[in-house]
């Protein structure tokens, strides 16, 4: 009589498998690493951030780290999961000892691993460009980054589990562009028109961008932004559990 491999081994195997799949995919790598790096360099050599700060790189780096969470959680997991669902991969793996919960845990590990790689790459380049993060803000920033990744991964899975993969591809890529341009990730939304600003504070992207900027620029814990992120994570997870279709 056969038996399953231990739970930890199954989940770690799936985490490694999904991580490798994300890193091997050219488009995923582009949106996870190349485009954020271009944003980092672009914001540090152009005057776009000059109206908000004296140090471009100090404001650019937290925003680009926030963008990484959108790349990996929303766009990366959204697209990968959408196509796996189309091809029946989610159903097949659900019938193996991995199961549905192991599949989800594997995705969590993959998102955290890719996010860690992104953080190391972006931080290294930012430091070379003269970044001075507030030391006291680093630990809270990492916690908020993980929370943000949770919110965006839940949203990515919600989209992937409810619409066709082609639609997921279009929606998550479009959201990435919109949120990067006007979602309060790279630029504080203080400069936007009054009608947009209050609503924009409720976006998960604004919350994550503001939380990381508060932590890494002023060593302040942005409670409001953290609560907004937490609410998004909980609501999106519950919605994904409720509406996600495995086939």
């Amino acid at each position: 009589m056969n038996a399953p491999a231990p739970l930890l081994r199954r989940v770690l195997l799936q985490g490694r498998y999904e991580t490798v799949a994300m890193l091997r995919n050219g488009e995923q790598l582009l949106i996870a690493v190349i485009l954020p790096l271009m944003a980092l360099v672009g914001l540090s050599i152009t005057p776009l951030l000059d109206e908000f700060t004296d140090s471009r790189i100090d404001m650019a780096a937290p925003g680009v780290l926030a963008l990484c969470a959108v790349s990996t959680g929303l766009t990366g997991q959204g697209i990968a999961t959408g196509f796996d669902r189309r091809y029946g991969v989610l159903r097949f793996l659900s019938t193996t000892p991995l199961g549905q919960s192991g599949l989800i845990l594997g995705k969590v590990i993959a998102v955290l691993t890719v996010l860690a790689i992104q953080t190391v790459v972006i931080s290294t380049v930012a430091l070379l460009l003269g970044w001075h993060p507030a030391p006291a803000g680093i630990a809270p920033a990492l916690v908020q980054l993980v929370l943000g990744a949770g919110a965006f991964t839940s949203l990515g899975l919600l989209i992937a589990g409810t619409v066709r993969p082609e639609a997921t591809l279009a929606i998550t890529n479009l959201l990435w562009v919109l949120l990067a341009a006007a979602g309060g990730i790279l630029f504080p939304i203080a400069s936007w028109p009054d009608v947009y600003e209050p609503a924009a504070h409720l976006l998960p992207s604004t919350a994550l961008g503001d939380a990381l900027r508060s932590a890494l620029m002023q060593a302040e814990f942005n409670l409001t932004a953290s609560i907004v992120l937490l609410v998004w994570t909980v609501v999106a997870s519950l919605a994904a559990i409720r509406w996600f279709k495995w086939s």
Partner: peptide
């Protein structure tokens, strides 16, 4: 039932259920 039962059962789905890139 959990992983214990699933480890004793093999499934081939109609469309295969295989990831495409690997």
């Amino acid at each position: 039932a959990g992983a214990g039962l699933r480890s004793r059962v093999g499934v081939m789905l109609q469309e295969g259920g295989l990831p495409q890139a690997i």
